[in-house]
Design a binder for these strands. Structure first.
Length: 839
RNA sequence: GGGCUCGUAGUUCAGUGGUUAGAACACUUCGUUGACAUCGAAGAGAUCGGUGGUUCAAUUCCACCCGAGCCCACCA
């Protein structure tokens, strides 16, 4: 570091000039890359890979600060510490971003074609995909960048293919027509958990299919009713009992329907007419009823969100259009009985906000039942611990009611299925326009494309066009990043990882899936502890969102306050188990002040240092400490060692060791906010306000320095940049980085309750004297005489012994007298104290 | 509809079955300009969301209610 002379030490810490340089030093040191040491147990975190479309938001800032604190702490403790970084290709999200870009050029992905489109996405990735990585570095994250991974890396893709083939061979993967959530905009199936619900007021229409039809039904979506194949009623409903089992043919606005009357317990007799028109192809619940009752399934809505040819006169219309027209027609024909307002939740695509159409389509699924079982066990048996604890129940409840996982997406950006079709047979099946059923298998599942088609022996096999759900690849993250399926040294040594820190919203999407994937492929848990951190909300408790304008950009905060203050401030307002934090910028300002305070304590100590240039009279400001300190400098040089000499020394060392102990405990329990509060209080209100102040009178510079350096170490995981910078001024010769420093050891023998108690008494006495001054409107800086009546008592002796400190800090002159003087009397621990107020 | 979290000073949060409920920031007053324009000291500020119950005693335990937020399910 070039300018670490004390005389160059600026008055305040300025993050902008410092942080980037420091980060480069760290990187150059190579210290973030651990060396495998089989004698030691490693500490390992896999970063939740941010999307390449992402930009650092408050959730990331909190999440990665937590991880970095733990990683730095463990590194200092001497653990072999690895933080694996990486990014996620994020199928739908990224594809949408690039599609939006294309749209500006008046193009769609179909104009480019699959190959060119993917190329385009890769270009986009090269250009913007590492943005978030740079932002993580700005935050100070000490990841091992030599191990950076991306979920579409060739080696990672291999892991994905291996996993797929494994599942398939075990019989866990099946393909079939099922009802899925279909996004007509993204043109793909999405899973249940990728849907967001939005309450909306719509109309509930009550009508009959035809005049002669005996039962009326109610629906919010009349257009789907063209695909009805049944009416479901509650088995106990007397009104409809007689119809159950009947099949009625009718014509509904030009479309012939065969309606079977079935009974189902889930039908609420009080809702609408108590009769539910069953549309197997376009409603999740109805699909299940159709399967249970062996009903015909008719698609009336196509993948574009348009009515199919099964919709008779409404063919080709958009869904909304068809709805309007049908309502008009129902009215015209006198079939519409009632229209009322009705509030329900509209399903929207999480990624693009388009209303979801439940549709029947051919999709790939993973059977979950067997996979879930061991994943339930390990959590039940606390092999994996959740923090906060409450998530254990939430996790288990979800896992115990797990549905099969739809893993196919009709996208282009992602891992293409390692499934190869016989082109000849594929062609044939298309021509047949067969029902959505596969009776005949004409594909092979294989990591590589077979050279020869096993079905016809001569065709060029074609790969399944679908890509895998992004989460299928993320599920392999903790072990695939370490080299799986290869048995690499990394994998052998660093797996399973130690700690996972992520947002609670991806508990199901990601955490659960990593657990069962790891148990399946690695035969072990992926991590020992899962920490689901608080959600960062605005101060008013509202969700942070760009579109609402309620977002706070951590990069702006870093720019304004520095990375350290941003980190410290966020953690300062965090409590470990809290579900949400209401983010306020004030804490960052406070943190900035705190860092500045820390900086200035350092500055003070440096200028007091006998070997510093200031003390040798070379300081431009003159003689560093003034005449008073010159004498003291001599004292300092008389080999005072870092040993407690005085009560003050004993007290501060005792307190310091308590703080080290407590801080260590709190970090081990992930109570990072509390740890910060503790250190903050100690540094400011014990070390600075008392110890450093007293040290101006009773010098023990080596000890002061030692304590200070210990505090820098304690703080380093929280505020790595500023502590590193200050540390450099204390290490002019050695040039050793603080990241190499060891975590402070607790010296139990220095914990000294007696000294703490005694010092507390001195503190109280000083405070009392200051109060008296204030009460009597005496200027605090005015030195007054305080008369203390001599007495045989331990407190008297204590006060007498600590006379200098008391005088110094209370700006008084103590006089120990035999006779009671005139003046205001106060009692302190049975000691009679007098002051004269009207000088 | 089900589950969960939270409601304590102006603000963000600690905290505890029992003497005057804490901190930080903000605020007020006084003082400081040779570590700290980002300093010091002192101080004001809370009927601990509401109601009822358990208890000798509740902010702390229980029930209900109100308010804020999250997750899951979803009735057509």
């Amino acid at each position: 570091m070039e300018s670490n002379n004390v005389k160059n030490l600026p008055k305040a810490y300025s993050p902008k000039e410092v942080e980037e340089k420091i980060y480069k030093l760290w990187q150059k040191s190579g210290f973030f890359t651990p060396k495998i040491d089989h004698k030691k147990k490693p500490f390992v975190i896999s970063i939740p890979p941010p999307n390449i479309t992402g930009s650092l938001h408050m959730g990331h800032a909190l999440n990665n600060t937590i991880q970095d604190i733990l990683v730095r702490y463990h590194r200092m403790k001497g653990d072999v510490t690895l933080w694996v970084p990486g990014t996620d290709h994020a199928g739908i999200a990224t594809q949408n971003v690039v599609e939006k870009e294309l749209k500006k050029e008046g193009l769609t992905r179909y104009d480019l074609g699959r190959e060119k489109f993917i190329k385009r996405v890769w270009q986009w990735k090269e250009k913007y995909g590492s943005r978030i990585i740079d932002q993580l570095k700005k935050l100070g994250c000490s990841c091992d960048w030599t191990r950076l991974r991306f979920t579409l890396d060739e080696s990672y893709s291999k892991a994905v293919r291996t996993a797929f083939v494994h599942y398939y061979n075990k019989g866990y993967i099946y393909k079939g027509p099922r009802i899925v959530n279909w996004c007509p905009r993204c043109h793909t199936a999405i899973s249940d958990i990728e849907i967001k619900y939005k309450p909306q007021i719509t109309k509930l229409y009550t009508f009959k299919y035809s005049k002669e039809f005996p039962i009326s039904i109610a629906t919010t979506r009349p257009e789907t009713k063209l695909g009805d194949t049944a009416i479901a009623v509650n088995p106990k409903d007397k009104r409809y009992k007689k119809y159950i089992g009947q099949e009625i043919k009718t014509n509904f606005l030009g479309v012939n329907l065969k309606i079977k009357i079935i009974s189902d317990r889930n039908v609420d007799p009080d809702f609408g007419t108590g009769a539910l028109g069953v549309t197997p192809a376009h409603s999740m619940v109805d699909f299940e009823m159709a399967q249970a009752n062996d009903l015909e399934i008719i698609n009336v809505i196509g993948p574009e969100g348009k009515m199919t040819d099964k919709a008779g006169p409404y063919k080709g219309m958009r869904v909304n259009q068809a709805r309007e027209k049908i309502v008009q027609d129902l009215k015209k024909q006198g079939l519409l009985e009632k229209v009322e307002d009705y509030e329900h939740s509209l399903s929207l695509c999480d990624r693009c906000g388009t209303p979801i159409e439940p549709l029947i389509s051919e999709q790939w699924f993973v059977k979950m039942k067997e996979l879930a079982q061991p994943a339930i066990e390990v959590v039940k048996k606390n092999k994996i611990k959740f923090i906060p604890k409450r998530y254990k129940k939430i996790y288990l409840n979800w896992m115990e009611n797990l549905k099969d996982w739809c893993i196919s997406r009709q996208l282009w950006w992602g891992h293409q299925f390692p499934v190869f079709y016989c082109s000849k047979k594929l062609e044939e099946s298309k021509n047949k326009k067969a029902k959505l059923k596969i009776n005949e298998k004409y594909f092979v599942v294989s990591e590589e494309k077979p050279k020869k088609c096993p079905f016809c022996g001569k065709c060029d096999m074609v790969q399944e066009t679908d890509v895998l759900d992004t989460w299928f690849s993320s599920a392999l993250w903790p072990f695939a990043t370490l080299g799986w399926p290869e048995q690499t040294d990394d994998l052998k040594y660093f797996y399973p990882t130690t700690f996972l820190c992520t947002a609670p919203e991806i508990l199901y999407l990601w955490v659960a899936r990593m657990i069962f994937s790891s148990l399946e492929f690695m035969k072990t848990i992926p991590f020992k502890t899962v920490y689901l951190h608080s959600t960062v909300l605005t101060k008013e408790g509202r969700r942070m969102s760009k579109s609402l304008g309620t977002g706070v950009d951590p990069l702006e905060l870093i720019d304004k306050y520095g990375a350290d203050a941003t980190r410290f401030g966020i953690i300062y307002q965090t409590t470990r188990d809290l579900q949400a934090i209401h983010f306020g910028e004030e804490a960052l300002l406070a943190s900035q002040k705190f860092i500045n305070k820390l900086w200035n304590i350092g500055r003070f100590i440096l200028t007091q240092d006998p070997i510093s240039p200031c003390q040798r009279g070379r300081c431009p400001k003159g003689r560093g400490g003034g005449s008073n300190t010159q004498n003291l400098t001599l004292q300092v040089i008389t080999r005072r060692v870092t040993k407690p000499n005085t009560l003050t020394d004993k007290w501060i060392l005792s307190r310091l060791n308590n703080v080290i102990k407590e801080t260590t405990n709190l970090i081990e329990k992930y109570e990072l906010g509390k740890a910060e509060h503790l250190i903050y209080e100690f540094i400011w209100h014990e070390f600075a306000d008392w110890y450093v102040e007293i040290s101006k009178k009773e010098k023990n510079i080596p000890l002061t320095k030692e304590i200070y350096l210990t505090l820098l170490k304690l703080l380093h995981p929280f505020i790595p940049f500023s502590t590193e910078k200050i540390y450099s001024y204390f290490n002019k010769q050695k040039q050793q980085l603080l990241i190499f420093a060891n975590w402070p050891l607790i010296k139990e023998n220095l914990i000294d309750k007696k000294s703490e108690k005694d010092f507390k008494i001195i503190q109280n006495f000083i405070i009392k004297l200051r109060n008296i001054k204030k009460e009597n409107k005496i200027n605090p800086s005015q030195i007054i005489s305080v008369y203390i009546l001599k007495k045989e008592s331990k407190y008297f002796n204590l006060i007498q012994k600590q006379r200098k400190i008391i005088e110094h800090l209370s700006k008084t002159k103590l006089k120990f007298v035999d006779k009671k003087p005139k003046g205001v009397k106060l009692n302190f621990k049975n000691i009679e104290v007098f002051i004269i107020t009207n000088n």
